[in-house]
Design a protein around this nucleic acid. Structure first.
Length: 737
DNA sequence: TAGGGCCCTG
DNA sequence: CAGGGCCCTA
């Protein structure tokens, strides 16, 4: 888990903010890595090589609100000053024939030299600060020039005695002091915000001795920050400026705080004292920055303030994502509560389990679904050593226990079972859809499909074919958080869409996870259990006029997993309704609206639902006729019996084709209308299909197919051959054959 | 004119 | 499987 403090701490461990980058190319290249986009906030530093100007958009964003006034005055003046200085330097370079500034100039008085030297340092510092806040760009060449200029000024060989210049310096001094004060206040705010956020961790850092990950001087930085808040002496300014110059750190602002970073290796502070000071800071500071972006900015800002520019953007992005993620997780939880309170969601996704207690996603915003997703992603990607836990052959928990753990499991760190379910790079490619299903304590009333369809046999318990034997997914196939979230959102969407167009709902419900083989449709509620429904006898005797009742062992009368009981007819159609409609097609190719209403008692019919059902049957017919024509044409072309359909021989006058149950055409039809193959195709349908095939064949043989309306006659024949739909279809749920 | 069906397309 | 266009019919 990437807590903010973790991010903070890791920054210093991953980043070497004090790398002096003695190699100019390194110093130039590194900042560009920070902002691949190039950045370009503000005007380039005057005189600097644009290609070597590392932008600092992050600190710019961080400091701009509070530092805007400072920039509005001091920054502009400094820019002007810098430009003036550049101009002067250029002039002097022309005169001197070299780049060194002030070398060989008029001698100044000692006091003036010292004053100028001091001013130069302060101006430099201010310039660097301004760069960080505003343009945030500085080049190494510029840095070198500055260093040379400083040395030359210290030697007093430069003539800088003009009166106007002096006035300007004084003016700049005042501005500098003002800017310093504002910077100090801003830094206090930033650090207070940070300290308030992670006071405990910082306390641990300070008082617990060595930092956990970063032993490169975080504490020193804090110390330096406190010094900043307390105020600094001019000697420190000088010293720090000198240090940063020596370190050739062109991008480290020379403020006392920034410079403290650079000298952290040289100072050994008393940890107890720091702890006290930190406590004071934390205690006295209010929360200055609230909100996701602000906090993320603070984290990043801290990193930048500490000179950790390398990878700063990534850290910022991480922080941002983390906060956004936690916010989204909180929203999800709240929405779940709003939508599912006192409702009959499967317990596995009930809000109480989604966010156990208030500690889940509330407040901290570090747990919850989103955190689980992050955890999972982390674990999936190979994960760290701490997350790589061997798969546990632990016995599956009780279903209720599992469901109660379903979401606490999410909020936990990497979970054993999760690893077991999803070993990194060891997942079965054809992970069945059942993996996407949430745990459910209630048996899916929809008959699970035979293993050979979508579910690996190993994933189905041997008893899965028996209605009273809890045909659940094996515990090892319990869902993953991502799936659970998906399922949860589907639930929410389904509920939200319950007032919308059923056709639209269907589009959602037709999503992969809810199609074939999903025993947990969105509409499923515990009360829909067949055994609990008064009008739904679990051992209902089916009407077996034509088909049905197949594999006598299966005494389950109804595949009702998708259905609510009467009185709670649902709006819209479920995938199981589709399945049932397909089975109905075995009997009725052209069902009337009344027939549909009769056989879908658990559906609240309206115009849209009726139209959808009619459309379904239209599609069924289309597929049916397409197959008939296809095989008829094939037979006519070959003039041979196809796919095992025996030629009727000589005594067959005009119908050489037969449709046996062992033919390819039959297999295709059965696969389409009875995909799970758990319903015995009625003989009457086979006969009808055979008749249709013959009609198509003869029409093709006789050349009637040249008529654009040649199929209509066949349609007329077929539509008259509808059979009565068995009574078993009048009950809610899918009839079992 | 609304409902239903076919056809085509995505 | 859904959507839309077109046609037919009661």
């Amino acid at each position: 888990m990437d807590s903010p403090s973790d991010l903070f701490g890791r920054q210093s461990s991953l980043i070497s903010p004090f790398d002096p980058y003695p190699n100019p190319s390194t110093a130039l290249d590194l900042p560009r890595h920070l902002t691949p986009s190039g950045g370009g906030h503000g005007a380039p530093y005057p005189g600097a090589n644009p290609s070597s100007q590392p932008p600092y958009p992050l600190i710019h964003h961080l400091l701009q609100p509070g530092g805007a006034p400072m920039r509005s005055r001091g920054q502009l003046h400094l820019d002007r000053y810098n430009r003036e200085e550049e101009r002067m330097e250029g002039e002097e370079e022309e005169g001197m024939g070299g780049r060194l500034v002030g070398v060989g100039g008029k001698r100044l008085s000692g006091a003036l030299v010292a004053d100028w030297s001091y001013d130069m340092m302060r101006v430099k510092r201010l310039r660097l600060e301004s760069l960080v806040k505003g343009d945030g760009e500085i080049g190494l060449e510029e840095k070198e020039e500055e260093e040379k200029g400083r040395r030359s000024a210290e030697r007093g060989n430069r003539e800088k005695g003009r009166e106007g210049r002096r006035k300007e310096r004084e003016e700049l001094k005042e501005q500098l002091e003002e800017a310093r004060g504002r910077l100090k206040a801003l830094q206090e705010k930033v650090w207070k915000a940070f300290g308030e956020r992670s006071a405990q961790e910082e306390e641990r850092r300070w008082s617990g001795g060595e930092p956990e990950e970063d032993d490169d001087g975080d504490g020193e930085m804090y110390k330096e920050e406190e010094e900043t808040a307390e105020g600094i002496t001019e000697e420190e300014v000088e010293e720090e400026v000198r240090e940063i110059d020596d370190l050739s750190l062109p991008f480290i602002p020379p403020s006392p705080h920034f410079q403290g970073i650079a000298k952290q290796d040289q100072k050994a502070r008393d940890h107890e004292k720091r702890s006290e000071e930190q406590r004071n800071v934390n205690g006295g500071g209010g929360v200055f920055l609230e909100g996701v972006l602000e906090r993320a900015a603070v984290w990043m800002g801290c990193g930048v303030v500490r000179g950790e520019h390398v990878g700063g953007e990534q850290k910022f992005a991480q922080a941002l994502k983390q906060e956004l993620g936690s916010a989204v997780a909180r929203v999800i939880d709240r929405v779940l509560r709003l939508y599912t309170q006192n409702e009959t969601l499967p317990p596995s996704i009930h809000p109480s389990t989604l966010s156990p207690g208030e500690g889940g996603n509330e407040g901290g915003g570090r747990g919850g679904v989103w955190a689980a997703l992050r955890e999972r992603e982390r674990g999936r990607g190979g994960g760290s050593a701490t997350h790589d836990q061997p798969p546990l052959p632990a016995p599956p928990p009780h279903p209720h226990q599992e469901q109660s753990e379903a979401l606490p499991l999410i909020t936990r760190r990497t979970d054993n079972r999760r690893n077991q379910l999803l070993p990194p790079n060891n997942q079965p490619n054809n992970r069945t859809k059942n993996h996407l299903l949430p745990p459910h304590p209630f048996p899916p009333l929809c008959q699970p499909h035979p293993p050979h369809h979508h579910t690996h046999p190993a994933l189905l318990p041997p008893s899965s074919h028996h209605k009273d034997s809890s045909p659940f997914l094996p515990p090892t196939s319990y869902p993953l958080p991502i799936s659970l979230l998906h399922y949860t959102m589907q639930q929410l969407f389904t509920r939200s869409l319950s007032h919308l167009h059923p056709l639209h709902k269907e589009g959602i419900m037709n999503s992969d996870a809810y199609m074939e083989g999903n025993p947990f449709p969105p509409q499923l509620t515990p009360s829909s259990s067949s055994s609990s429904h008064p009008s739904f006898p679990p051992f209902a005797v089916m009407d077996e006029r034509d088909g049905g009742m197949r594999g006598g062992g299966r005494d389950r009368g109804m595949d009702s997993g998708m259905y609510l009981g009467p009185g709670s007819a649902q709006e819209g159609l479920s995938p199981c309704h589709l399945k049932k409609a397909k089975l109905m097609f075995f009997y009725a190719r052209y069902p009337s609206s009344n027939t549909l209403k009769t056989n879908f008692p658990d559906v609240k019919f309206n115009r849209c639902v009726t139209s959808q059902l009619i459309k379904w049957f239209s599609n069924f017919r289309e597929f049916f006729y397409i197959q008939m024509e296809r095989f008829a044409r094939q037979a006519a072309r070959d003039r041979l019996p196809r796919d095992g359909a025996p030629c009727l021989g000589r005594d067959s006058r005009e119908t050489p084709l037969r449709l046996g149950r062992d033919t390819e055409l039959y297999r295709i039809l059965n696969m389409h209308y009875n995909k799970s193959n758990d319903y015995q195709v009625p003989d009457r349908f086979v006969e009808l299909a055979e008749l249709a095939l013959r009609e198509f064949y003869t029409a093709i043989q006789t050349g009637r197919d040249s008529d654009p309306c040649w199929k209509k006659s066949i349609y007329k024949i077929i539509c008259k051959l509808d059979s009565p739909v068995p009574d078993s279809f009048r009950l809610p749920g899918c009839p079992m054959g």
